[in-house]
Amino acid sequence: MTSAPTGSPSRPAAPSDLGVGPLLRAWREQRRVSQLELALQAGSSARHISFVETGRSRPSEEMVLRLAEHLDVPVRERNALLLAAGYAPHYPETPLDDPSMAALREGMEQLIQGYEPYPALVMNATYEVMAANRGIAVLLDGVPESLLVPPLNAMRLTLHPEGLAPRIRNLRAWRGHLLEQMGRQVALRRSEPLRALYEEVAAYPLPPGTPDGEPGGEPGAEATAYFALPMRIEHEGRLLSFISSVSTFNTPMDVTVAELAIETFLPADPATGKYLHSLLS
């Protein structure tokens, strides 16, 4: 999956039992948008936005969805806004194993398999691994069976002191990157399961001997100028370097689909690509 942030992300305010107004105000303040700016974007007035936030005016269902769109509120939280306003949820949440999701599952499997020999996996909102290819299996060589019991969790596998962490050469930087990423998502999604995961993995001790900084390259190796932070990990005595990329679905209309992410790992140097091809091609 640069130093780690101190403490866990602050808990969001405005519980749903206070109504839709405080929830919308919390999202607007989190996005650092003024009432006037939001009104101009949503085709309304600052006066009306103020009345909605203070509970003096009940927004229409269309207005709730329009404001949520302009505030870039996650799909699950848009349903929460609608419920708080007295409307039915707009977006379904279909289990991934539902027959109606067959085409989606097949498409994701084809995508991650087509990425081989490079690692790729599909995760949900709490980093549970929904699908993975053979490249991921290569990285997990040597991980204890206790960490491989389903459902697999990408963050636990990466940061646990008995998982991949001891083999990640730039662990402090990579760990910091992952915790910062999770912290942003905790604030965005207001998810207690995600917050609990964050607090769990942030508390993992660093493996003994973890260096303060990333060590130099292998003896005799040329320095590599990376265009993004790599994950540098040992595998059977070799040092592999990967740049990760995360993709999500555009304009999802289902909560499950909205929370899926496909993470792929691109070789950051020719030696890594050549080695993976020799293993899996």
Rank of each mutant, 00 (worst) to 15 (best):
H235T: 04
L179T: 05
A68C: 07
T6D: 13
A103K: 13
H70R: 15
E218K: 08
M253V: 09
F249R: 04
P161I: 13
L188Q: 14
V186R: 01
V257Y: 02
S281P: 02
V52K: 00
A14E: 01
L280H: 03
L266Y: 13
M123S: 01
L36M: 09
Y127E: 03
S16M: 05
L67H: 00
Y91G: 08
R58E: 07
A258W: 06
P95W: 12
G213D: 15
L24Y: 06
P95Y: 12
W174N: 00
R28P: 08
K274M: 10
V143M: 08
H160C: 08
R76A: 15
G220L: 10
L260I: 12
R156M: 08
T158E: 03
P59Q: 00
S247L: 14
Q110H: 14
P211C: 12
N124R: 02
P205S: 04
L67Q: 00
R31D: 07
F51A: 00
L239F: 04
R47A: 02
L260K: 00
T210P: 05
P95V: 09
R184P: 01
Q35L: 06
L266I: 13
V138P: 12
E234T: 11
A80Y: 01
L188W: 10
E199M: 05
L178G: 01
R32M: 10
A202V: 09
S8Y: 05
S278E: 15
G209S: 11
R195V: 03
S34N: 10
E93C: 13
T94A: 11
G163D: 04
P166V: 11
L18P: 00
R169D: 03
A80I: 08
E180R: 14
V201R: 01
L157W: 09
A88L: 15
A165D: 06
E222R: 15
T210R: 10
E199R: 11
A268R: 00
L82R: 05
S10W: 04
D17V: 03
D141H: 14
P99L: 12
A85T: 03
F242I: 03
